[in-house]
Design a protein around this nucleic acid. Structure first.
Lengths: 416, 416
DNA sequence: CGAGGGGCATCAGTGACTGAGATCCGGCAG
DNA sequence: CTGCCGGATCTCAGTCACTGATGCCCCTCG
């Protein structure tokens, strides 16, 4: 039963903590490099002496987290031995519990997907769903064929709100019956794996830091375009979770003064103006999509949204205008967040991102730049995630990798 | 010439860093306690062994940062020796450069104001203003009578935007002619003091962590009610500055769909709907304040705003309604920030806070609670700062104390 | 006035990082 | 083919912060 969140009274540190921390620092440097690093390069990058690097490298080699991969000799002298991550050195299982679909992945140390599966989210009792999830996890692990002793744990991404202390799901809007369900305990019990629970948007941000390459470094906001809209926050390479793990709730940022009334009492909240369901409804009203107004449930919306994108791709002006408006509205919300946090980058992703990315990438950067309060000082990079559609589940698995291997400041401090 | 901001490639740590860090941890524990702590209590709180605490205490005593202050004997056994901060152990000078007024303070280690002065902000050339500031600092230090060798440095709080790397002021809306003025260099040169520059709202947040008592711990947002509106952000006891030091720009959060058009193109931004200048204008239109529409400059607004508050205090319904509306609008903006960051507390402060506090404290907590996305998990505390009106200048001085003595994770890492 | 108990210091002991020097490894000139 | 050279890495102490064990000190209470 591990805790993600930080205790408030700041505690001291000691020698073993320091050693472990430096180990993770070196691992991170190797991880973030493309193509591995030699010991000498590591010494320069992390600022430790070559001897220390050697010692820690040995520990990493013993733990099979890294491997020596060839030599790089340029000029005279002994060629440098390149150290790379050992993909098979550690694995993590990730589950994304979405109101519509549950996604499962097994990740290796590089953050690559080794195995993956999906199932429609069963509607019944949470306890039953959890049992199904646990079963599916066992199947997945077997199918993947990975060494079970190398599996560091299980990460679970769930819709907010959550209670990080309890490891529970607290009444998410689209998962009725999930009221304070302690999914962490339940899955630890059922699978025997150390389990971490976090919000889907936070998980997506963690995925970006671990598997997203260059765009996952530094300070950024991950805009998650799913059934709803939310963001994950990373500042100086560390994820921001907030007091209870609920950071990133941006749904009620007002972006459209003429927008529809929201349940919060204001008009034009981004969650009631720019989420796929609303966009689809708008398209229907405008006659871009035909009038069948059957269901507003997950798959239905997804399908109709895809239809709208198809039309836009085919050049339908009205469809394009609708997507463009949605991009404008989302950009306003993003501006609020980026101005509040002064990040250097915005990463878009999530299940609905793939289809709308051209329309967003064409408009959002300029809009953000115009509204950037720090415009005179630095620009604001806008990119789509390289992690892909399963970013929720991949992020869930990355929660485990991050918790185990990332150089979090928290790792240095003594426990309460 | 010190840098506040963090380098991105995370670097390792070593023994001396660890020792220094633990020293700051212990100092912080003593600082945050009311009335000092014994060595045994410290050992429990920070998690280090009693021996280590003893050793570090000795270092702190040698540096005269703490003093042994009496004994506390309850029951049998040797009574505990209480360790307290030594107020005279360190001093810091703070300057708040506001468009209307420049405030100077000298702070002791406890964060108490030892000496303080003000001057109207001269309108001329920035270079001339900086010279005046430097002169005034010398005068203040002399008048304060503190041991000059104990002055750790100079902190300067300025309106944003700033460039933290350059230590410069970058075209703030109300300080024309201040275009990329490298005030940090200039004041280091002119005063001989190590100088730190930061945004006024960030400084205010730092003031709260250092001199604000219990409300300055953990994760909170400091809402600074000044000529404009902005916020400082503290997460897990560490200030969030952002990539370039410009975090906390929340002026363009939309809070009033029927509000006035803002220069950003949207309607009802908090900075164009709820800042004192606008509130005063509104009161004038409503006939609560008489029609003289002379100046909209700093002192004028301040005076008329005070007049409005007087009327409200006297029971004028219309005046109260206007302040109540302003509270509602500000609360909406605060909700956006608290939901984005999931903090546990909102601290209000700034020059205009004192007068409006009763009207805000009566309404804002309930409004925030209603909009709190994590309502089911934890509440949201709302308090007024205990630091007072000079929170900008005090915060500026606290920048120095924080930089020198706070247990920032950054302190552990090797330099680039 | 002595026993008891808690606070605190002293003294080694551990272990992570560091500096100096040795060793290893390949390229290159002779 | 051999020896030289330069750079990478390893070996071996050395330093220093934290820790565990031990003992002194000081106050309260019987």
């Amino acid at each position: 039963m591990t805790e993600i969140r930080q205790p408030t009274p700041r505690r001291g540190t000691n020698l073993p903590r320091m050693g472990d921390f430096n180990l993770t620092v070196i691992l991170e440097a190797i991880r973030r490099s493309s193509g591995g690093l030699s010991r000498v390069e590591l010494a320069q990058i992390v600022g430790l002496s070559p001897q220390t690097i050697s010692n820690i490298s040995r520990r990493l080699l013993d733990q099979q987290l890294i491997v020596e991969a060839g030599k790089e000799g340029s000029g005279p002298g002994k060629p440098r031995t390149i150290l790379r991550l050992n993909p098979a050195g550690m694995y993590a299982v990730g589950v994304h519990l979405d109101p519509a679909v549950i996604t499962f992945v097994v990740l290796n140390l590089l953050g690559d997907v080794v195995r993956h599966s999906r199932m429609a989210t069963p509607g019944g009792d949470p306890a039953g769903v959890i049992t199904s999830i646990a079963e599916q996890i066992q199947v997945l692990i077997e199918e993947s064929g990975v060494d079970a002793t190398k599996i560091a744990g299980l990460g679970v991404a769930v819709p907010g709100p959550i209670d990080l202390d309890e490891g529970s799901v607290v009444e998410p809007p689209l998962l009725t019956r999930w009221n304070r369900v302690r999914i962490r305990e339940a899955l630890t019990e059922a699978t025997g794996l150390e389990t971490l629970v976090d919000k889907d948007v936070t998980s997506a941000a963690v995925a970006e830091t671990w598997a997203g390459g260059a765009s996952g470094a530094g300070s950024f906001v991950f805009m998650y375009m799913g059934t709803g809209i939310g963001c994950g926050i990373v500042l100086n390479d560390e994820v921001v979770r907030g007091t209870s793990g609920n950071a990133g709730e941006i749904g009620h940022i007002v972006v459209d003064p003429d927008g529809p009334l929201c349940d919060c009492g204001q008009r034009g909240c981004v969650k009631s103006s720019a989420i796929p369901q609303v966009v689809v409804a708008e398209a229907q009203e405008a006659g871009v999509l035909d009038g069948r107004h059957e269901g507003s449930d997950g798959p239905e919306v997804q399908e109709r949204f895809a239809e709208l994108c198809d039309k836009a791709d085919a050049g339908d002006e009205k469809a394009i205008a609708i997507l463009a408006k949605s991009a404008t509205l989302v950009a306003r919300a993003v501006s609020v967040v980026t101005n509040t946090l002064d990040v250097e980058r915005v990463v878009f992703g999530g299940p609905f991102w793939g289809r709308v990315s051209p329309y967003f990438l064409e408009r959002v950067p300029a809009l953000l730049d115009t509204n950037n309060a720090a415009r005179m000082i630095h620009g604001l990079e806008v990119v789509g995630t390289g992690v892909g559609e399963d970013v929720g589940a991949i992020g869930a698995a990355c929660l485990v990798l991050e918790h185990t291997l990332a150089p979090r400041a928290q790792r240095l401090l003594l426990e309460g």
